[in-house]
Amino acid sequence: MSIGVMLVYGLLGLIVVITALGMLTSRNAVYSALFLVLNFATVAVLYMTLGAPFIALAQVSVYAGAIMVLFLFVIMLLGAEHITQRSTGRGHRVLSVLVAVALLAEAVIYILFRGAGVEMAALPSLPPDFASPAAIGQLLFSQFLLPFEITAVILLSAVIGAIYLTRRERQAAARTAAAEQPAEKPVEEPAEKTPIY
């Protein structure tokens, strides 16, 4: 491994670790979320250097983009920027230390004994355009055309559902319905409801 590659990976790894620590230790939830965005973006760069540009871009658009925007929305709407002093219990802390120790032990055991155990079979080398965006696009529109289209219908029904379940009742609509058959009591109260997030 050349010194340049070591340097790049070292730097990226350092940023990943620092942003992860920053996310854990910030008192302000917005800072935590922003640290996590930086963390995701750096991991995306790592994917890019490993030759997986599609996964890198998906990581940026889905995790760093969509999901983190959602996180920030929720944090700001709930006004939960500032975490109170005693928000985490003792059990929580003990558990997280245990999990961290277990993961660390796993890594150490792997590094110490990786030569000793069963020799892993070498994977066949991948074609140069493996998992390139062009290759994935071609597969998506040839072999996986039908799944692609069905996914579109699934997303459409999710959108319809989201709109239906969250939109406000129109008072006019309820009134016309009530005027048609005034004998029975309407089931749905026409009153405006404040949306719940």
Binding site: L146, P147, I150, T151, V153, I154, S157, A158, I160, G161, Y164, L165
Partner: peptide
């Protein structure tokens, strides 16, 4: 296709 069909039949039913 099994998975997508499962989602396509379930998500509208959840709503």
């Amino acid at each position: 296709m099994f998975f997508l069909a499962l989602e396509l039949l379930s998500i509208p039913l959840y709503i």
